[in-house]
Amino acid sequence: MPTFRLAPLALLASAALLSACGTMMAPAPMYSQAMLPDAVKVPAGHKVVLETVGVGEITYECRAKQGMAGQFEWVFVGPDAKLMDRAGKQIGTYYGPPATWAANDGSKLTATQLAVAPAGTGNIPLQLVKANPAMGMGAMHGISHIQRVATQGGVAPAASCDAMNVGSKQIVKYQADYIFWKAA
């Protein structure tokens, strides 16, 4: 008789467990650089340790072109963005100059550009940078490379840049994924 009473409880527990498993989320797919141009791929022997989405602004300034009298252009001044994790929580910032990636834990780093590749009309280019040694222990410690991918917006303004508005600044919205790599 006791086994008869345990069987319905076991059946109920099994059903609850199966139900919970059915609602679990599948793990996020691992980042792949397969579809990226070779120029911005991180060399073999490295692994992704952090994926972020940078959401912010890029400032441009109207300046005279170097060595070209009477000609003017919008010049990149620097970024100001929040770095969000894939769940939308802010985990750091990206600002410059110099281009600096800073984690909320106080660690930060700068980097040297290695390559860029076109990202479509109206979008800043894809980019690969080699990280300089990080300042502080934390999320940025040991980072070897950073990729800027999935860019949206951020190109120089379409507004006129001429002698009448030299020195004026324009702010352009942008978004990009920043993928952080370490040696494997």
Rank of each mutant, 00 (worst) to 15 (best):
C62F: 01
E73P: 00
P118L: 03
A102C: 07
M68E: 14
A131E: 07
A150F: 15
K89A: 13
K82M: 10
I124D: 09
A134C: 08
T100V: 05
T93W: 02
G136V: 14
H145M: 09
A99M: 14
V129H: 02
I91V: 15
L109K: 08
L114T: 02
A150W: 08
G106E: 05
L126S: 09
I91W: 02
Y95I: 13
Q90I: 07
A99E: 10
W101Y: 04
W74M: 06
A111K: 03
F76D: 03
I124L: 15
Q113V: 09
V75I: 12
I124T: 13
H145D: 08
K82A: 15
V75R: 07
V116T: 14
G122W: 03
S144W: 06
T121Y: 00
A119Y: 04
M68K: 14
A117C: 03
D80M: 15
T93D: 06
A115F: 04
A117P: 00
K82L: 08
N132F: 06
G142M: 10
G106H: 13
W74K: 05
L128A: 07
P133K: 10
P133C: 11
H145N: 13
N132R: 07
V149F: 05
D80T: 14
D85L: 10
A131P: 14
T151G: 11
T100C: 08
V149I: 13
I58R: 02
K89Y: 14
D85Y: 05
P79K: 05
Q152Y: 12
I146A: 10
F76K: 08
N123Q: 11
G70T: 06
G122M: 02
R63V: 12
Q71D: 05
I124Q: 15
F72A: 02
I143Y: 05
K89G: 05
I58D: 04
G78L: 11
A87P: 00
M84D: 10
Y94A: 13
L126E: 13
L128W: 03
M135Q: 15
K65G: 00
Y95W: 08
H141I: 00
A119T: 09
A102Y: 07
M140V: 12
I58M: 04
V75Y: 08
A69G: 06
A119L: 03
E57Y: 06
V116H: 00
Q113C: 01
P133I: 12
A131M: 05
T93S: 10
D105C: 14
G88D: 07
T59K: 03
A131K: 06
Q66P: 00
T59W: 01
A87R: 15
M135S: 15
Q66C: 00
D80C: 12
D80Y: 13
A134K: 09
G78W: 11
L109C: 14
P118H: 02
A117D: 07
